[in-house]
Amino acid sequence: MSTPTPIRAQSVLDLIKNRRTYYQLNKELTISKERIQEIVKEALREVPSSFNSQPNRVIVLFDAEHDKFWNLAEEVLRTVVPPENWEPTGKKLAMFKAGAATILFFEDQNTVDQMAAKFPIFADKMPIWALQSDAMLQFTIWVALEAEGLGANLQHYNPIVDSKVAQEWNVPTNWRLNAQLVIGGRAAPPGEKTYIPDEERFRVFGA
């Protein structure tokens, strides 16, 4: 087995610091669809999970399939949002649809249930740990794609779109949708990022 090439911590931290939420996107990809798929698949392989259970699942939607997802989201939301309140919701959905692709993040409930049965002492923690792994995957892909010059924003239109998604893309019943990462070209700068003081959220002992 080859030894991994050393990477300085600051290089990783710089990528994390440069990650931002880009709401204004367009359909101009800075890298190929093939490269995006490679990044997603490599992240799927390498992101950790409890007991190496690997519960994460992903579907990537490009072009017309991406548009279809946001059309389905609009179809569902129009049944629950009153017409007089529709305008802000419609604008948000149009903003997401303006992007080039959507990455759907799922967790395999069969895997979670199997791990709970295998390790009953941790049964109540398995769903939490699966979500933590999925969150790491979302963030890893987000950072990696932004490092390639793309913009992205993370959305959560589950569970209201779940049944439509399952029907349209033949999603296994044991896959539970957790989040949607919208990606595309950067059509406008991100908003200002603010921070609460370190003193309010960090403590150290013994240093």
Results as ranks from 00 to 15, higher is better:
residue 188 A to M: 04
residue 193 K to T: 05
residue 133 S to M: 02
residue 141 I to F: 05
residue 87 E to Y: 01
residue 82 P to Y: 06
residue 35 R to Q: 15
residue 19 R to T: 12
residue 183 I to F: 02
residue 122 F to S: 07
residue 197 P to W: 04
residue 177 L to D: 08
residue 87 E to C: 00
residue 5 T to N: 14
residue 109 Q to K: 15
residue 67 D to N: 09
residue 7 I to L: 11
residue 135 A to G: 11
residue 67 D to Q: 10
residue 135 A to M: 02
residue 6 P to L: 02
residue 53 S to K: 05
residue 19 R to G: 10
residue 110 N to D: 15
residue 61 L to F: 11
residue 44 L to W: 13
residue 73 A to L: 08
residue 173 T to N: 08
residue 53 S to E: 10
residue 95 M to I: 09
residue 185 G to A: 03
residue 111 T to L: 08
residue 207 A to W: 07
residue 104 L to Y: 09
residue 128 I to Q: 09
residue 190 P to Q: 03
residue 85 N to C: 10
residue 148 E to R: 09
residue 91 K to H: 11
residue 165 V to Y: 07
residue 166 A to H: 11
residue 176 R to T: 14
residue 8 R to F: 04
residue 96 F to Y: 15
residue 1 M to Q: 05
residue 68 K to E: 10
residue 24 Q to I: 12
residue 25 L to Y: 04
residue 28 E to I: 12
residue 81 V to L: 07
residue 76 V to G: 02
residue 137 L to D: 00
residue 22 Y to E: 04
residue 71 N to W: 06
residue 127 P to W: 08
residue 75 E to D: 12
residue 196 I to K: 11
residue 29 L to G: 11
residue 58 V to Y: 10
residue 59 I to L: 15
residue 136 M to A: 14
residue 54 Q to D: 06
residue 201 R to S: 10
residue 40 V to S: 07
residue 145 L to C: 03
residue 115 M to Q: 13
residue 72 L to A: 08
residue 155 Q to V: 04
residue 121 I to S: 12
residue 3 T to A: 11
residue 183 I to N: 03
residue 186 R to Q: 15
residue 115 M to I: 13
residue 155 Q to C: 03
residue 40 V to M: 09
residue 117 A to C: 00
residue 55 P to T: 13
residue 106 F to H: 01
residue 116 A to Y: 02
residue 103 I to N: 01
residue 108 D to Q: 09
residue 131 L to R: 07
residue 8 R to W: 01
residue 198 D to Y: 12
residue 172 P to K: 06
residue 114 Q to A: 15
residue 48 P to V: 08
residue 6 P to C: 02
residue 192 E to R: 03
residue 145 L to M: 05
residue 198 D to F: 14
residue 113 D to P: 06
residue 169 W to E: 09
residue 120 P to H: 03
residue 23 Y to K: 02
residue 103 I to Y: 01
residue 162 D to F: 07
residue 107 E to Y: 04
